Simulated assay, not measured.
Amino acid sequence: MAGPDMPGPRQEARHTLHYVSEQKHDWPRVRLHVVTGKGGTGKSTVAAALALALASHGRNVLLCEVEGRQGIARMFDVDPLPYEERRIATGLPGPDGSPGHVHALHIDPESALLEYLSMYYKLGRAGRALDRFGVVEFATTIAPGVRDVLLTGKVFEAVQRNSRNKLAIRYDAVVLDAPPTGRIAQFLNVNNELAGLARMGPIKSQADTVMTLFRSPRTAVHLTTVLEEMPVQETADGIAELHRANLPVGGVVVNLVRPRDLDAADLEAARADELDRAAIRSDLKEARVEDGNGLVDGLVEEARDHAERRALEDDQRALVGELDVPTYELPRLAGGVDLGGLYELAAVLREQGMA
C-alpha cells in the first residue's frame, strides 16, 4: 500500500522516452522485484524491460526465470541458458553514460536440488549419481512444495549473496519472472506449502529464511495486466491474495496499451457512426489515395471498433486506478517486441519512475 517507499496510484502514465536525471524511482529499498501476471499479458516482457531499466548508473541486475520455457533466451536472442549466470545485455545508460549489465539465470528444480545437496550435505558425485537414478526428478515432482523451496531458495541466494564466494557477482537488484498470478501467492508462500511435508530440518529452515526476505520491504511483487475484464479482475484477486499471505504488493504494469491518436470528440463520433465521410474522402484524395473497394466504409468501421475498444479500456483503467497501488503503462509496439523494443519499454518504465 502507499507509504514512504510506495507512492499512491499514478493517474496519468507518461510515455516520453527521454531520461530525466532528477527522476526518483518508486522502489529505492527493493532488491527483489517479482513480476507476475495472467498468461498472455506479457509478464516476461515486463520482467525483461524492468531488468534493463534497473541496470542503470552502473548497476548489475540478475534476471531469473523458473518456469522452464527459456523465455529469456528467446527475448534476448541468445542461446538457451544453462544453470549458471550469464551476462546477456547492457542496461540503459544513465546520465553519466555508464550503464550496468543484465545477467540471466534459468533456474530448474533438478539443478537447484543438486546444488542444494552439494552445499548443505557435501554430496558432489553422490548427488549426480542420484540424478542418474531419477531420485532428483522424483523428489521435485512428488513434493511441489519442496520444488518451490528449491527454486525460491536460489533466488534468495542471489539477493542475499555474501562474501563467502568471492567469484560470485554481487547484484544491486534481482528480477524474477515468476509463475502466473493464479499461483504466485502459493509459489512465494513456501512455508504453507511445506506445512505437511517438513516441520523441521534444513528444508524447513531454508523456507523460513526465504520467507524473511519475501515478506520484507526489500521485496515487491509487481502484477502485469492488460485493459481487459478477466486480466484486471485476476490482478485485483491476486493483490487481495498477496495481502492475505502478508506478501508485499508492488505496482501494476498495464501492458499493450493502444495509442491515443483520436481525441474524445472523434471517438464519440466514431462510436455513433457520425464521422464525416466526405472529409475522409477529401483527405484521402489530398494524400493521393484512391477511394476504391469501400475504403472509406472500411476506415469508418475500423474507427468504430477502435472507439469501442477504447471505451472498454477506459472502464478497465478506472478499475485499475481503484487498486490503490502505483500503476505504470507500456505501449503496444507496432512491430512487436524484439530486443530494441525491450529497450524502448525499459525507457518508458524508467521515465514513469518504476526503475
Rank of each mutant, 00 (worst) to 15 (best):
E65F: 04
Y121H: 13
R128S: 14
L105Y: 07
G71R: 00
V78Q: 11
G91L: 06
Y83I: 00
V61C: 08
G153L: 05
V146N: 09
R87A: 14
P109E: 01
G124S: 14
R125N: 15
A112R: 00
F138D: 12
L151H: 04
A49Y: 03
G145L: 02
M75Q: 10
G127A: 14
T90M: 11
T140N: 12
D77Y: 11
A49D: 11
P95S: 02
L63K: 07
L150Y: 05
A47Y: 08
I88C: 09
E110T: 00
L63A: 09
E110N: 03
V135T: 15
S118I: 03
L52F: 10
L62V: 03
D108T: 04
A47F: 04
A49W: 06
L105D: 03
R147E: 14
L52W: 01
L117H: 10
R125A: 10
S111V: 02
L130G: 06
E84T: 14
A53E: 05
G100Q: 00
E65Y: 04
T141L: 07
A126D: 15
R74H: 11
C64E: 02
R74G: 06
V135W: 10
V61A: 09
P93C: 02
L151M: 08
A129D: 15
T90H: 11
V135F: 10
G71I: 00
A55N: 09
A139W: 03
H103F: 06
T140M: 07
V46G: 09
F138W: 15
L114F: 09
V155E: 05
T45E: 07
V149R: 04
H106S: 12
V155M: 07
R59P: 05
R69F: 06
V61R: 02
G134Q: 01
H106D: 11
F133D: 13
R147H: 15
R128K: 15
G94R: 00
A55Q: 01
S118P: 13
D79H: 14
E115D: 10
G145S: 10
A53F: 07
R59Q: 01
L151D: 09
L81P: 13
A104H: 01
T45L: 07
Y121I: 10
I142L: 10
V102P: 13
E85H: 13
M75D: 08
V149F: 08
A49H: 06
P99K: 02
A143S: 13
V61S: 08
Q70P: 10
D79Y: 13
V136E: 03
G71Y: 01
E84S: 15
P80F: 12
E65P: 09
R74D: 13
R128N: 15
G127Q: 09
E110P: 08
H101Y: 04
R74M: 12
A143D: 14
L113Y: 00
E85G: 11
I142W: 12
A139S: 15
R128Y: 13
Y121K: 08
L117S: 11
P109G: 12
D108G: 09
A126W: 07
L52N: 11
G145A: 07
I72Y: 06
A73H: 05
L63T: 04
L52T: 05
R69H: 05
G100I: 00
V146W: 05
K154P: 14
K43L: 11
A143K: 12
V136Q: 06
P80I: 02
L81C: 12
T152V: 09
L52H: 04
A55P: 14
G58T: 00
G97L: 04
I142G: 10
P95N: 02
